[in-house]
């Protein structure tokens, strides 16, 4: 049940955004993607989420031909930097969305959905906020709702694109510890994009440093830090 990304490539118009990216991660790993702006992190994440089509390459996950599945069947919870909450729904309805759109046979009963939402609200420490609208929440609270919404579908994989990018440093620090905790509890495989290498090295099991559509180095944080394989990685880490 591991994630195997093999030579995934993608170009926009004539511009190559990903030049054959390969990466393996064991089930339950927490992988951080770091790299300068424009290095292809978001593109890779969107391909894994089914939001973008890869030109070539393959991905196997949980023994599935991942790229041939449409986004809605992948059960990959995606969390955007700008939250992308449904503004016309309450917090509770946002979280319940993924359960309510299931085909009738698989859909939990109303009561089960209510319980599950309550449980998730408790998990993200927003028990009192179920009836509010997203516009009535702070940035950090919104991002926790977005995470709870992604967790509600019992995802196999969590894809987080700079989830804390819009938040201040103090909130980021709190949330990343908490995120790691949730990741461990849910037992998912997570891929976490961040600009902040300190953040990446603090929470991740594995770190991939990307540059110009390639992975320059991939390994445990301590190894990458101790032994940068390329000049780019060394410079990037010292920046």
């Amino acid at each position: 049940m591991s994630l195997i990304i093999d030579s995934v490539a993608k170009r926009f118009a004539r511009f190559p955004a990903l030049n054959g990216v390969s990466l393996n991660a064991p089930q339950g790993a927490f992988v951080a993607l770091v790299g300068p702006s424009g290095s292809g992190k978001t593109t890779l994440l969107r391909i894994l989420g089914g939001l973008e089509e890869a030109d070539s390459g393959s991905v196997r996950f949980a023994d599935l031909n991942w790229l041939s599945m449409p986004a809605r069947e992948r059960k990959a919870g995606f969390v955007f930097q700008q939250y992308a909450l449904f503004k016309h729904m309450t917090v509770a309805d946002n979280i319940a969305f993924g359960l309510r759109v299931r085909p009738r046979r698989e859909r939990p009963s109303r009561g089960e959905i209510r319980d599950r939402v309550q449980e998730l609200l408790r998990l993200v420490q927003l028990e009192e906020f179920g009836g509010r609208y997203p516009s009535q929440l702070s940035g950090g609270q919104r991002q926790r709702v977005a995470l709870a919404r992604a967790l509600a579908i019992e995802p196999r994989m969590l894809l987080l694109d700079e989830p804390f990018g819009a938040l201040d440093a103090k909130v980021r620090k709190e949330l990343r510890v908490w995120l790691r905790h949730i990741h461990d509890k849910a037992g998912v495989t997570s891929i976490f994009v961040t600009h902040d290498q300190e953040e990446a090295f603090a929470v991740a099991d594995l770190v991939a440093v990307m540059n110009a559509g390639r992975i320059e180095q991939y390994g445990a944080p301590a190894d990458v830090r101790r032994d940068p394989k390329t000049k780019f990685v060394a410079e990037f880490l010292s920046a």
């Binding site: 089914g50 809605r72 759109v101």
Partner: peptide, 9 residues
């Protein structure tokens, strides 16, 4: 996009 990743048709 979020709706699709959450399983919506």
């Amino acid at each position: 996009e979020v709706a699709a990743t959450l399983g919506a048709t």
